Simulated scan of single mutants.
Amino acid sequence: MVQRVVATESTLQLLEKLKTIHGPLMFHQSGGCCDGSSPMCYPRDEFRTGESDMLLGEIGDTPFYMSKDQYEYWKHTQLIIDVVDGRGGMFSVEGPEGKRFLTRSRIFTTEEREKLEL
């Protein structure tokens, strides 16, 4: 099965640590000018998604959302959520850990695009 969003092992490890601190989490891929490629990670009950957001998938039992408008730019790519040293968005829960989530991407192959029915 082709997945629109996947995570590195280091991301999954950090997610497990963050879940013990904050409980269930969720991601929202920022489309703002300041956060760039930083997916924001929030306690699941502290961020409201709306009709303009879409669920791309789950990583580590953590839902990953993106705005529909932003998705139009990314729909031909698989998002790979990684973690690097540094400070992320000020409201994202990984900040105090000295880490930040980072979205990398790769273009889907023709076969993968056909399976996804873009």
Score class of each variant (00 low, 15 high):
1 M>T: 12
5 V>A: 00
5 V>N: 00
7 A>M: 02
7 A>K: 01
10 S>P: 14
11 T>W: 00
12 L>P: 04
13 Q>T: 14
13 Q>E: 12
15 L>N: 00
18 L>G: 04
21 I>K: 15
23 G>H: 06
25 L>D: 00
27 F>Q: 03
30 S>R: 12
33 C>Q: 12
35 D>F: 12
37 S>N: 14
37 S>A: 15
41 C>Y: 06
41 C>P: 08
42 Y>T: 03
44 R>P: 03
46 E>V: 09
46 E>A: 10
46 E>N: 10
51 E>T: 15
51 E>M: 09
51 E>C: 10
52 S>K: 12
53 D>Q: 04
54 M>G: 06
54 M>K: 11
55 L>A: 05
55 L>D: 07
55 L>W: 06
56 L>F: 04
58 E>N: 05
61 D>V: 07
61 D>S: 13
62 T>E: 07
62 T>V: 15
65 Y>N: 04
66 M>L: 10
66 M>T: 09
67 S>K: 10
67 S>G: 14
68 K>F: 01
71 Y>T: 00
71 Y>F: 10
72 E>G: 08
72 E>V: 06
72 E>F: 02
74 W>Y: 11
75 K>M: 07
76 H>K: 13
80 I>T: 08
81 I>V: 09
85 D>M: 10
88 G>M: 07
91 F>L: 15
92 S>G: 07
93 V>I: 04
98 G>K: 07
100 R>P: 04
102 L>W: 10
103 T>K: 01
104 R>C: 11
106 R>W: 01
107 I>S: 03
108 F>G: 01
109 T>V: 05
114 E>T: 14
114 E>G: 13
116 L>F: 05
